[in-house]
Design a protein around this nucleic acid. Structure first.
Lengths: 203, 203
DNA sequence: GTCTATAGAAGGATAGAC
DNA sequence: GTCTATCCTTCTATAGAC
């Protein structure tokens, strides 16, 4: 593969990423992707054969990128409280830079769960999970958190971080009426979320 | 409009509701809706003229139904803690019965925010909001909650309730690996969520 | 590798018979 | 009001020239 090829493929990939995130698989048009990339439709098929393959490539790249963002949660050098603060700060900042990702990911996985399965099969979640449990066994006892409650807590943390972006359309509609600015709201949320969750855990 | 008309229109409406929630506006096919209703495509257009009008009708009906579910939050006879418990119990039960609604609503509003604006314009949100503030002024002081924090808290409550359903595909993929059953998880979440939030608010 | 032109299929919408 | 048949546009995908 020559340098020129790589450049074209990369251009196509970036354009496809933009259009797919914006419109979703069903709403995206190959013509729109070609226009964004500044080339013609035929080239899309030359490089990626079909719309579905192009989408799969884009989706996987994004999914892996997001999974990387979650990885530090499994770094054992931080305490639970440090992890919570770290997560909200980093994750919400990431979402500020990629505000349309949540709705895209949630929607596409629900439309086609098989695509996620393929990716999750390359990750040893069971081991990561038991490592996380082991790391914080003492802390969990201190906070009086049972093993059964841990998934509830982790999903709540993800929810608090992701939901405002997934529901951005609704929130902006409502905030408009009560005089709240969305961007400012999100900025404050980094701090608020961490304190909220830590308080909920502290008995 | 005769009784027979009403029945056909109703049949179409129900079929459209099912297909639109399942596939989304872009993914839904008029043919699929006709099949579900047990009639032919032409009749869809006879009753609703275009796909967009049919979708708009379905969307508005659903949006109003959901807003009704939120309404008791503005009932002044309950304390904050009672409202939180009531909300999680009722709302999660509602979502158990309508598990695909969150992703549908979130997605469609992000694709076309104008559709929500139209609906929100028929609701006096500003008044509801200031009423809510007035009702709980003393309680908010007791919990040490500032007026600025209230939107953060309310969105967090919605997030904790809605997110597991919006992210169902992801969660089921992960839960599978660590031996958690989704339905059981949700059932436990009604209780967990209320206690979690109340603890976060209690200083 | 990149383009133009076009095939081929699918989907929304309508005409017209009953 | 309901159906069949069909129009017309749109979209994915490919053929073929350069």
């Amino acid at each position: 593969m020559t340098e020129n090829d790589r450049q074209t493929e990369e251009k196509i990939f970036e354009a496809a990423t933009y259009v797919f995130i914006d419109k979703g698989m069903d709403g995206a048009r190959m013509q729109a992707i070609a226009n964004h990339a500044g080339i013609n439709k035929a080239l899309l098929h030359y490089y990626f054969r079909t719309k579905d393959r192009l989408f799969a490539a884009v989706f996987e790249k994004i999914a892996v990128k997001i999974l990387r963002k979650f990885a530090p949660v499994f770094d054992e050098k931080l305490s639970i409280e440090e992890k919570i603060r770290f997560f909200f700060r980093e994750h919400i900042t990431f979402l500020q830079e990629n505000p349309k990702l949540p709705i895209f990911i949630l929607n596409e996985i629900n439309r086609n769960p098989a695509r996620l399965r393929k990716i999750l099969n390359n990750i040893d979640i069971k081991t990561m999970w038991s490592m996380l449990n082991k790391q914080h066994r003492k802390e969990l006892k201190k906070y009086n958190i049972t093993e059964a409650a841990l998934p509830q807590i982790m999903v709540s943390i993800a929810a608090i971080s992701v939901f405002p972006f997934a529901a951005r359309g609704i929130l902006e509609g409502i905030f408009e009426k009560i005089g709240v600015d969305f961007d400012q709201y999100i900025e404050q949320r980094k701090e608020f979320s961490a304190e909220f969750v830590i308080k909920a855990l502290t008995k």
